[in-house]
């Protein structure tokens, strides 16, 4: 049993998220993954952008950085390059990472820098009041798509895979135990890793698009989930609305900070000398 309290800033509770929001489920899954890996709080740096999901780091008692809209991965790249000894986890959303921050997302994947991106996809800009995002499904309503969105969506998993990520997975908050296992694998992966987490926003998405009931929204995620290997088994008509879950990419290839360290060594430099932690050891 995970001692969640150990990792939480309980004095910052209650959470900012609305009743029925799935973000708390992701938060607990992250903590279970971190706890199982046995990471110390000092060696984790959690970075976020702007949005509901990006308020996660405020509640986690690690080194936390709440940046500007879309830029979490850029800030995180600086943290990781300056201090490769830190485990860097980015928490972001569909708008934050694939609209305003899309460039940083694909380039971090291309570099294969050892950052874990946990992307909460709720198909909407929740914090700003339910505007359409790059993942708002066709026909679904948003405060800026009052007649239903007609824009095609990003397939975030395909985007990360195409850009060069080492580990790419998708899961829903309807299966929290499967989720924490994927997050654990993503953190342990050396290289850029992405977990897309499908999570409901009853307040700004559900109310407009039904069902609005949080339980029904989670049930809907569960019903539409299809493990990656079983897509062929479902009727063709259901495939378009299916949420395909599981691991899509898991490969080993050169990681950015390791390659940079190799260059420094070849040139006779001493990596991170000025910026290394004065404590030295990684674990307490």
């Amino acid at each position: 049993m995970t001692d969640y309290d150990k990792y939480l800033r309980l004095d910052k509770f209650p959470l900012i998220w609305c009743p029925g929001c799935g973000d708390g489920i992701v938060l607990k899954a992250i903590l279970r993954a971190v706890d199982r890996i046995g990471l110390s709080q000092d060696e984790i740096c959690m970075v976020s952008g702007i949005g509901c999901s990006s308020r996660t780091p405020g509640y986690v008692d690690v080194n936390t950085l709440h940046t500007t809209h879309g830029r979490a991965i850029a800030f995180a790249t600086g943290v990781k390059m300056a201090r490769p000894d830190l485990t860097v986890i980015v928490v972001t959303g569909d708008g934050d990472a694939t609209a305003i921050g899309g460039n940083h997302f694909i380039h971090a994947a291309r570099r294969n820098i050892d950052i874990t991106v946990l992307l909460y996809n709720n198909w909407i800009y929740g914090m700003t009041g339910g505007q359409a995002s790059p993942t708002t499904p066709r026909g679904k309503r948003a405060s800026t798509a009052k007649f239903g969105s007609f824009e095609p969506n990003f397939d975030i998993v395909a985007l990360a895979a195409g850009a060069g990520a080492s580990f790419v997975a998708r899961e829903t908050v309807a299966k929290p135990l499967a989720l924490d296992k994927l997050i654990e694998r993503a953190i342990l992966k050396k290289g850029f890793s992405l977990v897309e987490v499908m999570t409901p926003c009853p307040t700004t998405y559900g109310r407009r698009n039904k069902p609005a009931d949080p339980l029904l929204m989670v049930q809907d995620l569960k019903d539409r989930s299809v493990p990656r290997g079983k897509v062929e088994d479902i009727p063709e008509l259901e495939r378009e609305s299916a949420i395909v879950t599981g691991v899509f990419v898991d490969v080993n290839k050169p990681e950015y900070t390791e390659q940079y360290a190799g260059l420094v060594e070849k040139l006779g430099g001493r990596r991170t000398a000025p910026a290394a932690p004065s404590g030295g050891s990684k674990t307490p």
């Binding site: 390059m81 430099g269 000398a273």
Partner: peptide, 26 residues
């Protein structure tokens, strides 16, 4: 050569973000 870190970022905004992250990391 001196053991420091150099990175060419994907855009100007990212470069500014990266130096802030690096500074916070020491």
């Amino acid at each position: 050569k001196a053991g420091g870190a150099f990175i060419q970022m994907e855009d100007e905004i990212a470069a500014m973000g990266a130096i802030i992250g690096a500074s916070l990391a020491g």
